[in-house]
Write a protein that binds this DNA or RNA. Structure first.
Lengths: 143, 143
DNA sequence: GTCAGTCGTAACAACTATGGTTACTTCATG
DNA sequence: CATGAAGTAACCATAGTTGTTACGACTGAC
């Protein structure tokens, strides 16, 4: 898979809004964010719309419109961002149901599901350990 | 999406070969494996070819041809299988280089890379904890 | 009320990855 | 030589991601 940049762009956008608000601005426009991310504003709006569904961002319409965070950067973990934008499980099972007559075909699904569950739990634990405030601090340190 | 079933099919195929050999057979054909996985033999051959490059499987041609494991199931971890078939990193960075004039655009790459490295390390640690023998035991227990 | 600016969304194209299928070649053993 | 299976190329279909254009909906400023 790979080349899945959705988490990167989402973290970038939220961090950008957070820093912008911290500097005294009320709202950030999708065009401003898109300039920083180097993409199209619609891409930003689509992604932020998913984050809004998860309660992480809000949007205002009309004149002087734009995006705001609903919470402080320090209270948003990468896990919340990940869950807001990544629907499916990390590893999928078989495209077609394997042969139930075969011992392996019959038992491999449950066996792998147990393993995958533990792996995803570890992934989530790791994602939960980093907040967007941590990301912002990393950004400022790198600058 | 995910629907990334490559790890599932690879683990299934290797486990199947291992059990088949344990039962006294010398080689397993891609058609036999494909029947258990419920897919096309070419799909199995393509995937096993990648595992052969990684040194996990071997193939014999000609009459009486087929596939064998190079090592015991207990000595093959899911991490080795994963690395043999998943080329890229779990999370990608930006599709286009973000704005270097922007503080966030400039620093977000290194900041996220550090985070992603830790996450992948945790994923690999978890994958390394399970061997194909563990998978086979789970399969037999489920049956 | 009008206007301007911005979000909300649909629609489309391009690209990539995955999965499935057919067809043909290559090879080694009996 | 005949046979059975791997090796591989060539497609097709599907789905996800990214980028783009276009247009409607909304709201604050005037």
């Amino acid at each position: 898979m790979s080349a899945n940049s959705r988490l990167t762009v989402a973290a970038h956008a939220l961090t950008w809004i957070g820093l912008y608000q911290r500097r005294g601005h009320e709202v950030a426009t999708s065009e401003q964010i898109a300039t920083s991310v180097n993409t199209n504003p619609v891409v930003i709006r689509r992604l932020l719309a998913e984050l809004r569904k998860a309660g992480l961002a809000e949007s205002r319409r009309g004149a002087g419109a734009g995006w705001t965070l609903t919470r402080d950067l320090a209270s948003i973990s990468l896990l919340e961002v990940y869950e807001a934008i990544e629907p499916g499980p990390l590893f999928g099972l078989h495209p077609s149901t394997p042969d139930p007559e075969c011992v392996v075909g019959h038992g491999i699904g449950p066996a792998l599901t147990a393993v995958y569950d533990e792996i995803e739990a570890a992934l989530r634990t790791q994602l939960a350990m980093t907040t967007l405030e941590d990301v912002l601090q990393g950004v400022l340190k790198a600058a």
